[in-house]
Design a protein around this nucleic acid. Structure first.
Lengths: 136, 136
DNA sequence: CGCTTAATTGACAATGATTATCAATAAAGC
DNA sequence: GCTTTATTGATAATCATTGTCAATTAAGCG
């Protein structure tokens, strides 16, 4: 794991983290930029992109790519969200993932078949890009 | 459901469906375009985009959007009747169930994150009606 | 088999999100 | 306070994808 140097706390970065903290919605970098301007602080668009990107890498914000290719960000919803993992069978590296429809689907299936107290286990495994590249 | 008119079978569309059928890899529209040119048939790039798009809408090909925003396509896998179980934690009675979207979803997630050889485990448990009625 | 017609094609321009550039600015540490 | 160096921001550049529009051609019909 590469230990990247701690990022400087600039007023722009602070402003970005501040607006992020005020909403848990997923918004595009450009939308966050607009929000910032409405709030008075004028942070450059490029800076918003860079900050959201680095925050996402640091795991401070969640990022998803829409079907149209736009990347949306929101403050990281702490630990409360139930999630699963996609784990590499070779090196063990794991990604946290969410299975959007699944929870509800399982619940409904249970009701349909007369089951209550539905619980589930979902494990997804594969070989990550790095391991595949090294033939492991 | 809107009944869209059946698309014409042009030689370009045929060529595209042909290369698609020869590989089960996920590739970008541009990559498929290159493949086509290598194979001799010169189909316009815009046409490749349009065809892949309509094929994807028609469910004939799978499409995934990568983290970088590129859309990848491959011929639709349509086959395996892999299934899972909903099991009662009390009496062990099990129902065979199918999780329609899941298989493909897991596969696409893998591609997006650079994983190959995706496999998964899905276990759903609950308390069946009989056991619930008897307070078990 | 020819004809008509509307869908399709392709070369290229346009879009739109994101990234790179680079001089100016300002954290952090001393 | 001063120096160093990451960060910023305005703007140009990139790159996948979509729109444009005249030319082409599949399909249905007689």
């Amino acid at each position: 794991m590469s230990t990247s140097p701690a990022p400087r706390m600039t007023k722009q970065r602070a402003a970005i983290m501040d607006v992020l903290s005020k909403s848990e919605e997923f918004r595009s970098a450009q939308a966050w930029h607009d929000t910032l301007r409405h709030d008075g602080s004028s942070v450059g668009l490029a800076t918003v992109y860079r900050s959201l990107q680095s925050l996402a890498e640091a795991g401070q914000v969640d990022a998803v790519v829409t079907d149209s290719g736009e990347t949306l960000y929101r403050r990281c919803g702490a630990e409360d969200t139930h999630h699963h993992h996609l784990r590499c069978r070779s090196c063990g590296a794991a990604h946290d993932i969410e299975v959007p429809e699944f929870e509800r689907w399982a619940e409904q299936l249970g009701v349909k078949l007369g089951f209550t107290g539905i619980d589930h286990t979902v494990e997804i495994t594969g070989i990550c890009r790095d391991c595949a590249a090294q033939g492991r």
